[in-house]
Each structure stands twice: as C-alpha cells, then as structure tokens.
Amino acid sequence: MPNLERHFMTYIIFGAVVLLLIIISWVIRTLNRFKVLLVKIREADSGIDVALTKRYDTLTKQLDVVKAYAKHESELFEKVIKLRAGMSISEKNAANREMDTLSGRIKVVAENYPALRSSENFKALQAAIADAEDHLQAARRVYNMNVSAFNQAIVLFPASMIAGGGGYRAMEFFIAEESKRADVKMSF
C-alpha cells in the first residue's frame, strides 16, 4: 500500500510539474505575442508620423503658393498646425483634422482664383497632397489593423488575465475623417 501511495504521489507531482511548465510556456508565449503586437503598433505609428509629416510639408508649400495669390485672405490661414516628435495618437488625430480643415480652406480659396488653380506649381502640389493623403490612409489602416489585433488579443480569455496583470490596456485607433473614407473615387 505505501508503495502504491508513493507511486501515486510521484504521478501527481510529475503531472503538476508538466502542467506548470505548460502554463509558464503559455504565459511566455502570450507575453511575447503582446510585445510583438506592440512593436508592430510602434512601427505603424512611425509610418503615420512619416505620412503626417509628408502631408504637413506639402500643405505648407501649397499654403505659401496660395498666400502669394490670395494675399487678402491670409487671415484664413493664420492658425498654425503643430507637429512635434512624440505626439500621442489623439494629438496626431487632432493635427490630422486641422490639416483636413486647412486643405478644405485652400480648396475653397483656390476656387476663387482661376490663375492659382491653373498654375503648374499648384497642380503639382495638389497631386503631391493626394499622394501624401493616400499614404496617410494606408498608414492609418496598417496602424488600426495592428491596434485591432492587439485589442482583440488582450480581451480574449484566458489571455485577458495576463493582460490585466501586466497592465496592458486597449489602445486608441487613429480615426479617419468621414470624407477621407471615400478614398478612391469610383465613378458609376
């Protein structure tokens, strides 16, 4: 009998050790997955920075061209958009919205100045802005894809227990303005 008990105890201990190893490896894998997703989010975030900067630079150049034509309306462009390193996603969202507003104002002013609209420089900048906006949309979608994957990973049970313990929180999406969602003109 004591022999049987000893065997039984051995099996229990062995089982417990195996179970513990499985749990530890799962915890490590889950934590690594979170970290990989966070790295991907950071990469995508820097993609947004690049695209936002490109859009900002092009808009600034276009603004200079517009100001030369529409000197009387320069107060329309007084508000300064600030871009700096290390902005949070909500700050980037805000800067992007301001750029949308500025871009809209430029378009309205350009409507009143046919010479401006037909200038080669302005046309080239319009094309560059469209390209920068395409890049920004793509960067936004890559970022949101990774944020979505991360947010899903941390709410699904049982990974949610580790996420809660490790202080992982759902991340904010980079939101597109409604009009920017109509990214490709499809003519029917």
Binding site: H135, Q137, A138, R141, R181, D183
Partner: peptide, 13 residues
C-alpha cells in the same frame, strides 16, 4: 508589406 497592400486595397476597391 501591409502599407503598400493597403495603398491598393482601398475599401471601395
């Protein structure tokens, strides 16, 4: 790479 794929795969497309 996802960025260039998203440049082509727009929601409408």
């Amino acid at each position: 790479d996802a960025h260039s794929a998203f440049m082509m795969l727009t929601p409408h497309f």
